[in-house]
């Protein structure tokens, strides 16, 4: 295991992107950080810049406007980065699949490591997803 991966596993820093979600998934992600679930206990912190991130949480189907930004974000991310898609929308576009401005699920554009299904997934599920990804390292 490289040093970078080892460090990543200890205290994963998370950056979160909304690619056109209904924002419920995003609220549940935030919820995981607040007192009831409090993942900060384990060193999981939401960071303000992609350049600090170890894990990229993505929610929402990809809309036409957001795609260039999403690609740029992924390019800017320090590698190795783990990408986790949260919610039915990000996994398979969910209810918005037939929308004219929706150009496909996240994994069509960037590599994805884990999918957390649900609409929205409960915070427990999101945490379980992150933990599973860390377990594979």
């Amino acid at each position: 295991m490289s040093l970078a991966l080892k460090a990543l596993k200890k205290s994963p820093w998370v950056f979160h992107v909304n690619t056109g979600a209904c924002n419920n998934c995003d609220i549940e992600i935030l919820d995981a950080l607040t007192p009831r679930f409090d993942v900060e206990r384990f060193g999981i912190v939401l960071v303000g810049s992609i350049r600090h991130a170890d894990v990229l949480l993505i929610s929402g189907p990809v809309t036409r406007n957001v795609l260039p930004r999403l690609k740029r974000l992924y390019e800017q991310a320090p590698k190795p980065i783990k990408v986790i898609v949260v919610g039915a929308c990000g996994c398979r576009c969910g209810i918005f699949r037939d929308g004219y401005n929706i150009i496909g699920p996240v994994d069509k554009y960037i590599p994805v490591d884990a999918y957390v299904p649900g609409c929205p997934p409960k915070p427990e599920t999101i945490i379980a997803g992150v933990v599973k990804v860390l377990g594979t390292l």
Binding site: C22, G60, P61, T63, I95, F96, D98, G99, Y100
Partner: peptide, 23 residues
């Protein structure tokens, strides 16, 4: 986050639309 919900809604039945608009 423009998803085109109004147009999508025109392809859902009256009873399905609430599920769409709550999103």
């Amino acid at each position: 986050s423009h998803r085109g919900i109004e147009l999508l809604s025109e392809s859902k039945t009256w009873d399905q639309v609430p599920f769409l608009v709550e999103r």
